[in-house]
Design a protein around this nucleic acid. Sequence first.
DNA 1: TAGAGATATCGCAAATTATCAATATCCTTT
DNA 2: AAAGGATATTGATAATTTGCGATATCTCTA
Lengths: 113, 113
Amino acid sequence: MNRESNMINDEQAVEIFKALSNQIRVNILQMLKEPDNNFSPQAHVIKEKGFDGGVCVSDIRSKVGLSQSTTSQYLSILLQSGLVEMKRIGQWTYYRRNEETVKQFEKYIGLKI
Amino acid sequence: MNRESNMINDEQAVEIFKALSNQIRVNILQMLKEPDNNFSPQAHVIKEKGFDGGVCVSDIRSKVGLSQSTTSQYLSILLQSGLVEMKRIGQWTYYRRNEETVKQFEKYIGLKI
DNA sequence: TAGAGATATCGCAAATTATCAATATCCTTT
DNA sequence: AAAGGATATTGATAATTTGCGATATCTCTA
């Protein structure tokens, strides 16, 4: 398996830069780095469904202090960039960091920037 | 001397992300990584004045294909973010990468993102 | 199956960004 | 001092982003 296959390209990198060009979205990504320190324990469902570290939208919303619609949209932007991943469980949507993308992004910075 | 004194903060980081949230500005920064490969040799003045790697605005402009005013403004955005530094020599303004900021930015990504 | 809760999407106004042409400023050289 | 070249700044307009309330969708439960 080609170890370089996940290397992000310039276009993807610019999309990530756009996602991070907003302080609140950076805050969300940073908070998701340590979910246990920043959010109350998520419903048991998470562990059962194997999406550890995922946090539901309403919990994120109460932390960032924006409207529900804006919070949802910001999470969508982070999702599009690949920095986070999402799983719907019941009526909740859980978001967590996509550490693979973050790692590839760091690698891109080191090599291409 | 405190080795952490140059660590950039969240606010500076977001300004850098904004600067890089545009493909052309990323291209400029990338081209400045290897000035000798991307630009014709800059006037002797450079070496004499000790601003190695600096490239004048008009040479950058002809590479990116934007208007002179837009090119100048983009360079100003990169300068504000700290990713490049600038030196006026005679009637020319030379820009080059600020490797110290780039290094601190990489460090920020690794630690905070 | 009707209602309630969680999230996504839509439509909108305000703010910011992209990009240019025109003009101003700053050097250098007659 | 004037002219010319290099760069910066100043409008101006189009496009994008921000952030909200309203509404739609999905899922669970009574």
